[in-house]
């Protein structure tokens, strides 16, 4: 189930984006502040009314797909961890079933289990730590059994242990054939954990390809205007000032 952006234009944010994403891989969207990363993710999730262009899922225009059908296929996780009411973890995760119109225990339990939060199921949202909240909100997405997971900065505000854990969960989803698209600020995470990196700069795609290529020091210098170099070995690279 391919996810394709065709000529996306959003005034002041996206200036003609074309890309075709295949499931079964982690795609990272990187770029300096204001490059249009979150806008592109929201557009891919079908949540923006665009000034131009279309997003197609398996050849179907998202804008004409009924919202529930779109919601069944695309799971979206925003950066903000907003939980307005002090509901239980299970009730939060069950919200992921809303597009299906059910609260099936099977997928909800599987999502709780996948993120090791079965023990938290009866806890209230406001009693959770930041790391637990992040896992609960990802479980909410998994409970909907989407074909695509689109997450905006899912690692922000998490410590390194929880970051790696969340990445491990996302990789497990990818291994089951789900497509994962992440907006990432941390270029080292993109380098080490993504299969493909799309670099945005001023609303356009500046680079698109395997991480080593898309995040070369030259590209980083061009888009972020900093001189850096990669150290370490493949899969465990770190970015330091050159």
């Amino acid at each position: 189930m391919k996810l394709e952006a065709k000529g996306l234009v959003l005034e002041g944010r996206l200036a003609g984006i074309d890309c075709s994403l295949e499931p079964g891989a982690v795609t990272a969207i990187c770029g300096p502040n204001g490059a249009g990363k979150s806008s592109l993710l929201e557009a891919l999730a079908g949540l923006l009314s665009l000034d131009g262009g279309t997003v197609e899922l398996d050849g179907q225009n998202l804008a004409t797909l009924p919202p529930r059908e779109r919601a069944k296929r695309l799971g979206y996780l925003p950066q903000e961890h907003e939980i307005a009411w002090d509901v239980s973890v299970r009730r939060l995760v069950e919200l992921g079933r809303m597009p299906h119109g059910d609260r099936l225990a099977g997928p909800v339990d599987a999502a709780l289990d996948a993120l090791d939060i079965t023990a938290l199921a009866d806890r209230r949202a406001q009693s959770l730590s930041g790391g637990e909240t992040a896992r609960v909100l990802l479980a909410r997405v998994l409970a909907g059994e989407p074909r695509w997971i689109l997450a905006d900065e899912p690692l922000a505000a998490l410590d390194i242990a929880h970051q790696l854990e969340l990445l491990r969960h996302l990789r497990a989803e990818v291994d089951r054939g789900t497509g994962v698209v992440l907006v990432l600020h941390d270029l080292a995470h993109a380098m080490n954990h993504a299969d493909r990196v799309i670099v945005l700069h001023e609303g356009r795609i500046a680079a698109d390809g395997p991480p080593q290529q898309a995040l070369s020091p030259e590209r980083i210098a061009q888009c972020w205007r900093v001189a850096v170099k990669w150290i370490g070995e493949d899969g465990a690279r770190a970015l330091v000032a050159a």
Partner: peptide, 13 residues
Amino acid sequence: ALTLGEPVARSLG
């Protein structure tokens, strides 16, 4: 669905 904010609610249909 709005419990998780407006964007999530929209993403849930």
